[in-house]
Nucleic acid binder design. Sequence first.
DNA 1: GTGAAATGTGATTCACAATTCACTTTATGC
DNA 2: GCATAAAGTGAATTGTGAATCACATTTCAC
Lengths: 217, 217
Amino acid sequence: MRATKTETSLRREQILEAALDLIGAEGVHHLSITAMAGRVGIVPSAIYRHFGGKDEVLDAVLDCIGKRLSENVRKARKESLSAPQRLRSLLMRHAYLLRENRAIPNVLFSDGLYAGHPARKKRVHDIVTGYLEEIERIFEEGVREGSIHPDISPGTGATLFLGALMPAAVLGNVVGIDIDVVAHAEKTWPILERSIVVDRPAAGSRIISRIDNGESP
Amino acid sequence: MRATKTETSLRREQILEAALDLIGAEGVHHLSITAMAGRVGIVPSAIYRHFGGKDEVLDAVLDCIGKRLSENVRKARKESLSAPQRLRSLLMRHAYLLRENRAIPNVLFSDGLYAGHPARKKRVHDIVTGYLEEIERIFEEGVREGSIHPDISPGTGATLFLGALMPAAVLGNVVGIDIDVVAHAEKTWPILERSIVVDRPAAGSRIISRIDNGESP
DNA sequence: GTGAAATGTGATTCACAATTCACTTTATGC
DNA sequence: GCATAAAGTGAATTGTGAATCACATTTCAC
């Protein structure tokens, strides 16, 4: 049965979505023109009516993911909360985003996408560093407003933040261990908060000093 | 020039190492019989004198990585330190291991290896869960001996621990952001420790109660 | 209605990687 | 030294997925 003719702008959406689904389910490695076409309900060669080739599809996938991530940060930054609360907000947004878009970790942390593809590798690099910088900015603001421990450098903080979500996202998706990212984020936040947030404006120094020796009788 | 005849037990080692190097540099996706052979200095078809095929090589790679990881845990567990100190020891060992074996994250967190390969996927799953369970055990011991916050479930703790290393390992390797895993681990530990270790036997409850509202002024 | 443009289709080509195989060379025990 | 088994080689085979192309169908403006 012949597929009904559909204009490119719509087909592109369908193909993109198919690609995201397939990547989410099977990883970048298993994404093939044939599989995308099958999911959309057209024949493989028809893909070339809407994309120049597989590379162009992958670029679109990357674009899409980059946009969703930065959109997420944008929303979190708009909220006029304290820095730690904005971090919490971003953590939860991130968790929901990852739950809905299982392709994201597969795309960003998989080699299949950019192996031997410097340009695309750079784009992934830019997306991730851009995201990290936004988190760093929140940390800096937190330190300035006195709500975040000054002994945490923004870079370390951002990496720490990423580490709070990554295991759940990566394990759940890539390795196939079933973890609810949102539930995990909710459990993790209080602990992360404990290591980031200044206890009381005055009491911070006591905590810092404890770390120097790490002993207690 | 013909390669010098070398007995299988040694060649297998060479091929395995070549595979690990290639995976570390380019990812699982780019590992080919031809590339391995080239690196060892033999012709592709010669690989089949020593391995049944590519799958057998990948299984060996997985075996090797699994062994190195569990060896690492074994060493850390042998040390008669407090639970937090054993965690620290494991974190640092882990960091060194990852620095020397850039293939590890690429293998464990990449789809190329086990996509459509249930048996191998299960092995990766077993390696990761086995590792997590060991970490959980250290957390349990810590809670029992009173050195680790009892409000951290072993599962959350283990995931938290993994999250302390993952960003550095994955970003450094997969995404191509240069992070020294060891330096990162050293910077991260004090912060992780702060959220895990009981401050003083008596003061813990104060910290816990603060988390309930999250306000200070 | 009609024709041009857009979209869909199936056959085909191409490149590349895994694997097999008949044959050659090397090492080693005797 | 020599027979033999182990290891190496290059050519040929096979499989797979991306990409192309000539042709068919649909849509839509006129």
